[in-house]
């Protein structure tokens, strides 16, 4: 039972990151290497808010907002000038962001591990089907499900969602319709950055907050995004849960093979179905 809860909560966490990555890719055709760094930044920001205000919830709200502002600045200042160049340059820029963000975190918070605690409401454990499950894990599952439901609702039903979907399909057309595409791009990048930081804030009480945490999770998020199909947010949910469960099962049965398994899943997908396992479209010529 606890394996399932751990798997689901991992999956939800991964989804928060993957959703941002895949939205950004869908809209900007950029694979954001720095997404892991934004996640890490989110964890540190939440930690800072908690130590200042004493409230976990303050951190959960503030971290994504600050990260979204930083994301908007990154997109405006750095990415915008290179959209008309080869996509490789955008990838390289986000790689540069990693170096800068990681350094900034090192300067501000130093090298030692930080520790964050779950809010009092979810500090304990709950008995479920005969095993004890930390209630914070359950909170993550519920929170993640709520965020993804909100996300789907926004993308499917709202005007913003329609603009985003239209603009990722055919930016020129949307521009002629009088929509400010460059503003939409900034918005999406900033929103993705916020989601990453939200993931970091939520993950804060689960893991030690440290500099390497961004890279550890970015590889998994790439795996999720690619298995789910780049730009395909529904696929990302399935893939996130798949990877979360794989990890959780792996940790309990074959811990030394977990990393191998996920990498081999990624490599296999990239080679055999680069459009993703959960994508309905066939491969086009």
């Amino acid at each position: 039972m606890s394996t399932i809860v751990i798997g689901l909560s991992m999956g939800m966490l991964l989804f928060l990151l993957a959703a941002g990555l895949t939205l950004i890719f869908g809209m900007l055709r950029v694979i954001n290497f720095a997404h892991g760094s934004l996640y890490m930044l989110g964890a540190y920001l939440a930690f800072q808010m908690v130590s200042v205000t004493g409230s976990f919830w303050a951190g959960l709200v503030a971290a994504p907002i600050i990260a979204a502002i930083i994301g908007a600045l990154m997109e405006r200042i750095a990415l915008r000038p290179v959209y008309d160049r080869d996509h490789v340059y955008q990838l390289l820029l986000t790689f540069g962001f990693i170096l800068v963000l990681d350094e900034a975190v090192r300067i501000i918070w130093g090298l030692e591990y930080k520790q964050m605690y779950p809010p009092e409401l979810f500090a304990g454990a709950i008995e479920m089907f005969g095993s004890s499950v930390p209630s914070y894990r359950l909170f993550i599952i519920g929170f993640g499900a709520a965020v993804s439901a909100a996300l789907f609702f926004m993308l499917d039903r709202s005007r913003y969602g329609m603009i985003i979907r239209a603009a990722s399909g055919d930016p020129e057309m949307v521009r002629t319709l009088g929509i400010n595409v460059s503003l939409v791009r900034t918005g999406v990048f900033s929103f993705g950055a916020g989601l990453a930081a939200l993931g970091g804030a939520v993950a804060g009480p689960l893991f030690p907050i440290e500099l390497g945490m961004g890279f550890n999770i970015i590889i998994d998020s790439f795996i999720v995004v690619i298995i789910g199909g780049l730009g395909n947010i529904r696929g990302a949910v399935m893939a996130a849960l798949l990877i979360g469960m794989t990890r959780a099962l792996g940790y309990s049965y074959a811990p030394s093979w977990v990393d191998f398994l996920t990498f081999i899943l990624l490599i296999g997908t990239l080679i055999l179905r680069p459009e993703g396992l959960f994508s309905r479209k066939g491969r086009t010529a």
Partner: peptide
Amino acid sequence: HWYGILGLVFIICTI
């Protein structure tokens, strides 16, 4: 913090 400075230089050069 030289690596962060390097990152900035890299970003500026890429653009």
